[in-house]
Nucleic acid binder design. Structure first.
Lengths: 205, 205
DNA sequence: CCGGAATTAAACCCACCAGTTTATAATTCT
DNA sequence: AGAATTATAAACTGGTGGGTTTAATTCCGG
């Protein structure tokens, strides 16, 4: 996401504001979130809020920046580069699936897709901490596994994105279009297994 | 999409209204489209517009219903069931890619993802004429090809969705998040070839 | 050419919302 | 304690946008 906070954080209620804003933005998105709502939720006066963030968009950027940062740190180093694809890829699938199914993951996609056109840096920020992060994690692993003769991948960047897409199969469109919001463990497992099987069928050495 | 038009279409300017609304909705989405804009674009007075559609949401549903219907008819019967996967799947990939890259395709996803939560039937409608349509087209083909011994697919529904997802790899997230809006033919070909190769590596008999 | 239906422009109502202001109160620092 | 900083409630501004009304006009079939 864009740079953390060029904002001057003057006082003590700063975190309250960000937390309240995070809640509201995650619940109703950017357009439908009113500043009054956010202030009320944060337990803070509107004037205080505006003393930290001169406008709603900056507040939104700050919220998204923090959330993405947190998720990125959390997701990092989840891959044990020394293990074989047959053990690593199912784990990667699980990490991706958990993200796609989380409230934050879903709302992130909605916001990324809905708001990227509005402020320039926003889309790039979302991309870097989403698909970009996946790419930065998987490609180095592919390199090492290939050096060990476990994989044979002509286009590793593409392969990383293919895997990420495969882990969305069937489930994710249904979630995004509100056709089905809950999935059994079997349904998720079916998609993850399908992704791993397909990936290995194509790229296992 | 939901049922065509329970609306009483009284007069001659009906189509003008729908066309104008289609243009505006496709350009700026639902929230940012004002009824005044639509009326102006349609060359029609606001009162006339409201005489056809009692509210903005119904107009939106009508527009989406028509567009999806048109696209669905257009996309149907594009698959020659008698040909082998090695010739059919690249064609299917092209159809999907063209859709994902079209203005209509992109805006459809944005609207589906942004608005599905608002009106109940909308998400289901989008799904049926998007992912659902793909499934209804591909699965029967898989059945026939498998009967000819050309494919071996344990879960054909999943396979159809996997293929659709694969055709988005790398490109589609970049488009949705406004990271990159134009792609060379080589870039598209790379994604499509990658999808077909992966699909066949996994499921070719 | 006439009469009813369709259309129009424009003003209007009302609600919501981003952002500001002001006068007052609570904190915090020294 | 006292001064400076920070927070507050509430009223206010200006603008936008969905939806309605009205009185005048255009269209079209009989």
């Amino acid at each position: 996401m864009p740079d953390g906070s060029p904002q001057v954080r003057k006082g003590r209620k700063f975190d309250q504001v960000v937390e309240g804003a995070t809640e509201v933005f995650m619940e109703v998105g950017f357009d439908r979130a009113s500043v009054d709502d956010i202030a009320r939720r944060a337990g803070v006066s509107k004037a205080t809020l505006y003393s930290y963030f001169p406008d709603k968009r900056l507040l939104f950027v700050e919220v998204m920046s923090r959330e993405c940062e947190a998720r990125a740190q959390q997701a990092e180093a989840l891959i044990d580069k020394s293990r074989s694809p047959r053990t690593v890829m199912p784990l990667a699938a699980r990490v991706l699936m958990d993200f796609y199914m989380s409230d934050f993951g879903q709302q992130s996609f909605r916001l990324a897709i809905g708001q990227s056109g509005q402020f320039e840096e926003l889309g790039q920020g979302f991309y870097d901490s989403g698909p970009g992060l996946i790419e930065r994690e998987l490609v180095p692993y592919f390199d090492e596994a290939e050096a060990r003769g476990e994989l044979d991948i002509p286009d590793k960047v593409l392969a990383a994105h293919q895997f990420a897409e495969l882990c969305k199969s069937w489930i994710f469109p249904r979630v995004m279009m509100c056709v089905q919001t809950e999935f059994t463990e079997e349904e998720k497992q079916r998609t993850m297994d399908g992704a791993v099987d397909m990936f290995l069928a194509r790229y296992a050495a």
